[in-house]
Design a protein around this nucleic acid. Structure first.
Lengths: 119, 119
DNA sequence: CGATGAACATCTTGTTCATTC
DNA sequence: GAATGAACAAGATGTTCATCG
């Protein structure tokens, strides 16, 4: 049995939510997460974001499209990878979120307990 | 920067509290923890408890004494290892607990945030 | 079986490098 | 520097084995 939720699962949850909100590509999501958690002393490593995205693709939740970043191709040729739900993706995501929610609640309960027990 | 608190630190916290309360030896503490967290779907592995105890000794927080378990040596020769605070141990423990408390609060904040952000 | 310990195997992470524009 | 990816190194854990009474 597991202790606390894994970082990977935690990040996947955020990625799914971001895809729901049409927040585009990897690097951007990374920056956003780093920003969000900066004040919590947590800076998700870049590799974890990509790994998580790859896993979500493997699992059939997301699929990828490629796009040039700028609107004017003559200015910016940078290619970015966008993520979208597959046909079953929305369903799978819903299920995944449900499971993670249960795990988050479990973790919160454990941590609360430990504060009560030790302080 | 770290994500959530490590299992090791979490266990050390409990061990320190248990030593404060004169709750004796490794195996016993293991059983107690397993019992406490059974309903949370968490069963700390035996190796982690011993590793944590060894570390606390390394760090100069605890020292060990050995004792025969039963009161009547002719009946039970089982040797157990008891843990106590060293001279500086109480101080070190206090400090350690303070740090862990900060980390626990940080973890709680992160998890709460993630529930807010994703549900 | 209760008790302690170590070894080993693995899974999860963090750091670094490679590549492209 | 923005962006993606993989390789590699290190750490933290889980599982199994060894020993003793």
């Amino acid at each position: 049995m597991a202790f606390l939720i894994a970082q990977r699962a935690f990040i996947k949850l955020y990625l799914i939510t971001m895809v729901e909100k049409n927040r585009g590509y990897g690097y951007q999501m990374l920056e956003e997460l780093r920003n969000e958690f900066k004040s919590f002393g947590y800076s998700p490593p870049q590799s974890e974001i990509y790994r998580a995205l790859h896993e979500l693709v493997q699992e059939g939740v997301l699929y990828r499209t490629k796009k040039l970043k700028g609107n004017d191709p003559s200015v910016d040729f940078q290619e970015i990878v966008l993520y979208h739900f597959t046909d079953q993706g929305a369903e799978l995501a819903k299920l995944y979120k449900k499971q993670v929610k249960a795990d988050l609640d479990r973790c919160l309960a454990i941590l609360h307990k430990s504060v009560e027990d030790n302080y």
